[in-house]
Every structure is written in C-alpha cells, then in structure tokens.
Amino acid sequence: MLSPEILEYYERGGERERLSAGTGRLEFLRTWDLLSRALPPAPARVLDVGGATGAYAGPLARAGYAVHVIDPVPEHVAAAAGLDGVTAALGDARDLPEPDASADAVLLLGPLYHLPDRADRVAAWREAARVVRPGGVVAGAVISRFASLFDGVVKGYYADPEFVSIVERALRDGVHRNTGAVQRWFTSAYFHRPEEPAAEAAEAGLAEVRTVAVEGPVWMTGERLTEFLADPRLTGIMLDMLRRVEDEPSVLGASSHLLTIATRTAA
C-alpha cells in the first residue's frame, strides 16, 4: 500500500514524538483546536484514517469519543491499539474496511499527502464520504506546496544540492520525491496548492468545504516559537490570533499544513 521509502520512514518511528515539541507541537495544538470546533460532540464514533500511533486518537478517546484507527503500517496499528479506548486495524484510505454511514466523523490527517495521483486522493475523500453518516464531518490534512521551500531556509537544508533538486521538483508538480538510501528529510509525498484539497473533496461529493491554515507562517519563527510554547499565556494568545486569520487566503500558502473540513450532505 505504501512505497518502500515511505514505509521505511515510518518504521523508523520518527512520527512517535514529532507532535510533542516545536513546530510539531504547534501543528498538534492548532489541529486539535480546529477539530474541537468541527467534530460532533462525544461519544460520537470517529474513524481516524492514517492515524499512525494515535497522536490524535488517544486524546479523542480520553475526551469520550469512540475512536477506530485505520493505518497501513503494522507498527502504527499495534501502537494505536494499545491506547485506552482506541481500536485499530490495517487498511488503505482508498478502500476502507468499514460499512456505509458507520462513522460520525472521518479524519484523513495522514493519507492525502502520500497519494501522489489525484485520482487516488479523490478516492480517499470518496471513501471517507461513503463511511461517514449523512451530515457527518470529514477533515483532511495536507502539506503546503511551499513547505519544503521554506524548510530549506529555516533548517539550513539548502546546503545539500540534493535537497535543492527535491524542492525544485515539488514546486513544479507538487511531488516531493525522496528516495535516498538514507532519508535525511521528509519522505516522499505530495504537496498541495491551497486550492487543491477543497476541489478534491468537492469532486468526491462532499459539501460545505472549507480549507484553513493550520500553523500560518508562525512555524518558521524558530526559538521564538519555543518561547511561546513554554508559556501557557503566550501560547493562548498565539492560538487565538491564528484562529482569527485561519481563513485568510493570503496566509494559506505560508502555512506548513492545511486542513480541509467538509460534510456529507444529509440524505
């Protein structure tokens, strides 16, 4: 289901702690804030597709949701299944082993940026629309087309000519192809232009589609971001300000991640 370099990347376990500090922590806090406003109230059933080791499934279960993770990586499934209140199974976002209208909400927080072909991404949205109940919510995360361009400056990756060529390809067609024997950067992925995920969700039959910036440009602030995250008061101010501009079109391209939220039309 996954190409070898993507599977190898996740089997190394790097995603286990990614959302716990720095830019990953900001991504988590903003995504959680968005989900808290979009999801139906607990104890709704949430299908977390591509949920990895349960970074969101665990907190959702603790908040009273019934959470089932579907992921293509066996190690992820085992880890998620070990969380209190979470069940998990192997599966592919394009062919979900779930009955029609069996979930109150579906999360696609991992699959979409590992499907380089548009038809496959639309298939994942369509499967989510199939298994969510009428009126239910589907939320999908993507990586911005320009994330690696900014990352090259923020983290100094442009010192390596190989990274430069990876970024040039991503800017041309969205395909971030990292097939090196030692993956020093993020693995192979598809990076969306801001207008693309909403169009894909709409083509899959979903309605009330909205795309928002997750981190905005704040993820590029380095040590200043760390200072804010260490101070609950400053963190609260930052999250409030980002909430105010999450719909601003001019901010979307500067965000590392985008979240598209849609609903299945009522029967």
Rank of each mutant, 00 (worst) to 15 (best):
G205E: 13
A57I: 00
A198W: 05
R172C: 07
A105P: 03
A139D: 08
E17I: 03
L229T: 01
E17A: 15
L108G: 08
Y190Q: 09
E246C: 14
E227L: 11
V214D: 12
E5P: 11
G156T: 02
G58K: 06
L90A: 11
A63Y: 03
V77D: 12
A267M: 00
L258H: 06
I166A: 11
G174H: 03
R118N: 07
F186E: 15
P232I: 02
R121P: 00
Y65E: 09
P43Y: 10
V182R: 13
A204M: 12
G85C: 02
V212N: 01
A128E: 11
G13D: 13
V73A: 12
Y65P: 01
P116A: 13
A89P: 12
G54A: 06
R224H: 14
E168H: 09
V153T: 14
A202W: 03
V132T: 11
T221V: 01
P134F: 08
G13Y: 08
A204P: 10
G180R: 13
L39P: 03
R224D: 14
D104L: 09
T221C: 06
R133S: 07
G82V: 09
G135V: 03
V138S: 11
A199I: 05
R25M: 11
Y10E: 14
S148V: 12
L252E: 02
H76W: 09
G64A: 04
E195M: 10
R244S: 14
H68C: 10
E162T: 14
Y10N: 09
E27P: 08
V245G: 02
S165D: 15
F146T: 13
A89T: 15
L229S: 07
